[in-house]
Design a protein around this nucleic acid. Structure first.
Length: 353
DNA sequence: AATATACACAACCGCCGATCT
DNA sequence: GAGATCGGCGGTTGTGTATAT
């Protein structure tokens, strides 16, 4: 081969632009039958005049059975906001925490909705950021249940979050932000879990396997979950374009896309969130939110939620400064807050309830 | 009703890291 | 070890649709 990188495809030979239903049908049909071991070879084998990358993108972002279409829920948006605060523009990582959502979709939502929302709030919030409650966005994460542990740690600072890039040690902890150790810990936990993923091939791409025979038992229960992902709200469901003779008919003993099984390794998510699910410190403190305040389950106001969360953190971290509002120093870069050993304590407390 | 503008989202592009040879 | 290949990721663009004028 010559020097330099070979083009992924001959742009003169491939079709570009929007996919037609027929192309979708062909791609789905082919992947159902043969899988997608080699994206580059796939279009040729499937008889598609498309670049392999284009096929892959189309499949991953649109045709994959577990892709959830439709508007993002408030919870999903909140999750994106907070994960973005944690991770920056790591769309694929963020997407991994939103089953059924693709990185591309999340990226679009961020660029179209969330960034603006944050920008708007940033302006709004700048007027009030001296108060404790200024640490909150107007979004509520209460319905996210125990995920709140991490997500609260990632409570968005709109002014900061409108910028690109992950929450770094300089930025977090300022202006009433939740102390960063928990953020770091959350990140570390995520990364540890990611590293524990046995094999990249097993985890990549939330891919599908197309075999009825070697379906892992633990995945069978997932079918039901996956079924929910088949609900589409878009007017054109590409999978509806499948022509009957081209696709495997749904097996009555199997899921509705025929004789392939979903092999989507959510272990990372499950483990991660299960770990967090074991943490219920916040719920205790919810109950403490002002004797006159709402009781748990009665719908805390955002302010109450934020306050109680801050109080919880203060208890755990022995911090009083937070009560004084976010205004505390920008010195959160002090090393004692970021050393792993120091970080472990509050998170551990958090995790162990 | 026609046109301009803004918005939303699908798709493309180029780079990077991992793996293969 | 070096180069080739591939999949994946993030940034950007193009296009269709909705809304405003």
């Amino acid at each position: 081969m010559g020097k330099g990188r070979a083009p992924c495809c001959d742009k003169n030979q491939v079709k570009r632009g929007p996919w037609s239903p027929a192309e979708d049908s062909r791609l789905i049909s082919f992947i159902q039958k043969y899988g997608h071991e080699n994206w580059r070879a796939l279009p040729k084998q499937a008889g598609l005049l498309r670049c392999g990358k284009s096929c892959r993108l189309r499949w991953i972002n649109y045709l994959r059975p577990d892709v959830k279409r439709g508007n993002f829920t408030k919870e999903e948006e909140d999750t994106i906001l907070q994960l973005h605060h944690l991770l920056g523009n790591k769309w694929s990582k963020i997407a991994s925490h939103l089953p059924g959502r693709t990185d591309n979709e999340i990226k679009n939502v961020w660029n179209t909705h969330l960034k603006k929302r944050l920008a708007g709030k940033g302006r709004d919030q700048s007027k009030h950021k001296s108060s404790v409650s200024s640490s909150s966005s107007s979004s509520s994460v209460s319905s996210l249940g125990s995920r709140a542990c991490v997500e609260r740690n990632a409570r968005v600072d709109p002014e900061r979050s409108t910028g690109q890039g992950p929450l770094d040690e300089k930025s977090c902890g300022q202006e009433g932000m939740v102390p960063p150790p928990l953020l770091n810990e959350a990140l570390e936990a995520q990364e540890k879990l990611a590293k524990r993923m046995p094999d990249k091939k097993d985890s990549k791409d939330q891919s599908l396997t197309f075999s009825g025979s070697n379906e892992p038992d633990h995945l069978k229960g997932m079918e039901e979950q996956m079924d929910s992902f088949f609900s589409f709200s878009s007017p054109y469901d590409p999978r509806a374009a499948l022509e009957p003779e081209e696709v495997n008919k749904p097996d009555k003993n199997n899921n509705e896309l025929g004789n392939f099984t979903i092999d989507i390794p959510f272990e990372c998510d499950v483990e991660f969130w299960n770990m967090l699910d074991s943490l219920e410190p916040f719920s205790v403190h919810k109950a403490d939110v002002g004797q006159d305040g709402p009781r748990p389950g009665e719908g805390l106001s955002m302010e109450d939620e934020d306050l109680s969360w801050l109080w919880y953190l203060e208890d755990e971290l022995g911090l009083e400064a937070t009560k004084e509002g976010g205004g505390q120093d920008n010195s959160r870069t002090s090393s004692n807050a970021t050393s792993p050993s120091d970080r472990a304590v509050p998170m551990k407390a958090c995790c162990q309830g």
